[in-house]
């Protein structure tokens, strides 16, 4: 945690990354929202921020069997070694 007397080092110029469509997610990807919003109803949240926290059902951790992070983007990629389709 940055302390109040120390200037936080905020990275400059974040990429203006457009939202890109993702492939089908790995069947082991999990998040709280998957269990709560089971009917897919839009709950009115702002899509400009996504603070979803994911875990992998194979490891029950935020890192997958390949020791890489569990994230929506990478867990929808068939190129990931541990990816398994639904």
């Amino acid at each position: 945690m940055s302390q109040p007397d120390q200037e936080p080092t905020v990275p400059e110029s974040p990429e203006n990354v457009p939202e890109t469509p993702l492939g089908p997610m790995c069947r082991h990807l999990r998040s709280k929202g998957m269990y709560v919003y089971t009917d897919g109803v839009d709950m009115g949240f702002d899509h400009d921020y996504d603070n979803t926290i994911y875990w992998c059902l194979k490891t029950m951790k935020s890192f997958g069997p390949d020791d890489d992070m569990v994230e929506k983007q990478s867990c929808c990629s068939t190129e990931r070694a541990c990816y398994q389709p639904v």
């Binding site: 945690m1 940055s2 990275p11 974040p14 203006n16 990354v17 457009p18 939202e19």
Partner: peptide
């Protein structure tokens, strides 16, 4: 700590770097 993670030459906590930029608004 965030200061450690954001410092130049910080140990890599996750592959791809310790700072992940979000979509700018």
């Amino acid at each position: 700590t965030e200061l450690q993670a954001m410092a130049a030459n910080a140990p890599e906590v996750v592959k791809g770097g310790n700072v992940r930029k979000g979509r700018a608004q």
